[in-house]
Design a binder for these strands. Sequence first.
DNA 1: GGACGCTGGCGAAGCGCTTCGACAAACCGT
DNA 2: ACGGTTTGTCGAAGCGCTTCGCCAGCGTCC
Lengths: 357, 357
Amino acid sequence: MSGRGRVPSGQPTIADVARHAGVAVSTVSYVLSGKRAISELTRNRVLASVRLLGYHPNAGARALASRRANVIALVLPLRSGIQVPVVMQFATAVVTSARSHDHDVLLLTSDEGPQGLHRIAAGALVDGVLVMDVELHDVRVPLLRELGRPSVLIGLPADTDGLTCVDLDFHRAGQVCVDHLAGLGHRRVALLGAPAAVYDRGTGFAHRTRAGVVEAAARHGVEAVTMPCEENAAEVHSRVVELFARQPELSGLVVQNEAAVGPVQAALAALGRRVPDDVSVVAVCPDQFAEHASPRLTSVPVPAEEIGRQAVSLLMRKLQDEPTPQVTLLEPRLTVRDSTASATATSAAYDARAAAR
Amino acid sequence: MSGRGRVPSGQPTIADVARHAGVAVSTVSYVLSGKRAISELTRNRVLASVRLLGYHPNAGARALASRRANVIALVLPLRSGIQVPVVMQFATAVVTSARSHDHDVLLLTSDEGPQGLHRIAAGALVDGVLVMDVELHDVRVPLLRELGRPSVLIGLPADTDGLTCVDLDFHRAGQVCVDHLAGLGHRRVALLGAPAAVYDRGTGFAHRTRAGVVEAAARHGVEAVTMPCEENAAEVHSRVVELFARQPELSGLVVQNEAAVGPVQAALAALGRRVPDDVSVVAVCPDQFAEHASPRLTSVPVPAEEIGRQAVSLLMRKLQDEPTPQVTLLEPRLTVRDSTASATATSAAYDARAAAR
DNA sequence: GGACGCTGGCGAAGCGCTTCGACAAACCGT
DNA sequence: ACGGTTTGTCGAAGCGCTTCGCCAGCGTCC
């Protein structure tokens, strides 16, 4: 009789489809995967049955048989102090483009650490791994090298050997900001950067931006001071004060800290420095922030979407054993808005007003 | 010879472990799952082999055989205009607590829509679904009801019949804010709420907070005006101006819009209204924001972590066919910081200064 | 007109795991 | 001393899918 029968799952299986269409199971499989030629006639019969029965292949079975889960892991830095909106944009872009490659996304947090990566990869839950917020000397990098699964890093570790990395070219971004300011005639500029912890942690983008700023400043013969900056209003205020104490004639400011953008504007206002009349501000931050500020900020946006897409597409390529470049750096573009102005036209504005008081 | 052999995967299988430990495959399985009694001796031998070989069960095979993927789906609202940091906190909490229940998290975006939910569920990729940012009349709700997989909603739709929902009690939160202000003697208060689009969309928390504010104000005999508010600085500023135009003696402000918190403070400062001397401000926002503002804000935090944990734990309970309450509302707690003060002590401060000018 | 190559389709062998029933062996009460 | 439990282990049957090898039927080419 029934013997040891288990309860059927309820969902139609490929066998149901095959029976309904009057073909073999393998035929259904080939219709669905397109891996062998199937006559128009048969294909249509099968597809009709699929639709009629509402068939969806069982992911586990498929993964088991094909040795591909069609899932990629996304390791997000869910620690605090991180630029949350950018991360979110990444995540969205990654999910969306993974779907367009017929893959789903498994979310991992950094704090499960290497353990998690190993578990996931060894258990064949995912075919590949996307790691965000990579540090210069990231503990996960050696692990990724010997993981036995393709991986793509978002961010640049010190040693990219044997890896695939994507990121905005933050070095160029720093340069571009200073180029813009210098082009407007500003001779004293400053970088208000990420929180000190981010530099200490050895996060690549912060260091690279700073280097770019410093280098471009030197090239233009412009004085540059750089300073880390925490993300609360009070701290931002005192940093700005400190900046002007160290460099009273400062007229160009690069801000790379989206959380600080608002407070910086408030602090400048409080100090009686008008933007862009007295000081020009360039931000490295998502466009959304730059647009919503007032005045709207000249900015170099972090193209989170595009980086996410690139990362996924590189990973897909690796999944098919195609070769990929070791490092992909996206060219930054600077969008001019209302927070930067020529220095010559207004250079003495603040001093004049100050003297008048 | 080799016949039709495929390449072995490289990873050790349960059979390798069994062989190495000198037991049957099923014994290894029972050791690992704990579903049958196994002698201390055998268990240890097996576990030793597991560690030695670095065995990790194959997720696909496990899912296929056990009909449980040990994965839950998290549907995030990755559209814009959403309170990003809160979402992120949710996600973290969900991932972390899912892991503590031995589950992983698959990330879905709302914009794949009902399609995505269906695909995931029908394909047995996930055992259950967590949906965030549920609207009052959410299109996904009917789908969830007939999905055939357990689900938990974060947020409250209009009709919760047959569902399991968790959320902060925003109605109470609104009340609590007004209670606090009224207790301090403020007689005219205002709610600066979410962007108009959020109300229009029928998002529960916005409406519920407003209702709570209005109700508590009525109870206290306090005048209340409520106003939606976009998230950019300029808009916030004009809203604040408008507020004081409509209600010149306004002395208590409830802000439910984390992105507006900073700008609100800036706007008040710009208008010469000091916090808390002239106007008390209560925010409904993550603690982190409230702490970083200056002055630090009295606030009702959205306990994203706890909601996330609760949601996961409810889902786990459903996965085991245990009954769950239809609606779980978390009690808001108000944290008093530096942005609220007694109205009586300072009520006329602003007017006095204004008159003096 | 027989050897040949294509096309389109079928059958069956797994993929690695869980779980059910069977069954020795050890333990119990009487 | 003997039936009845309990405890610990094993073997084997799938879970639903992919993929390999095979073959029937047909048109082709000397």
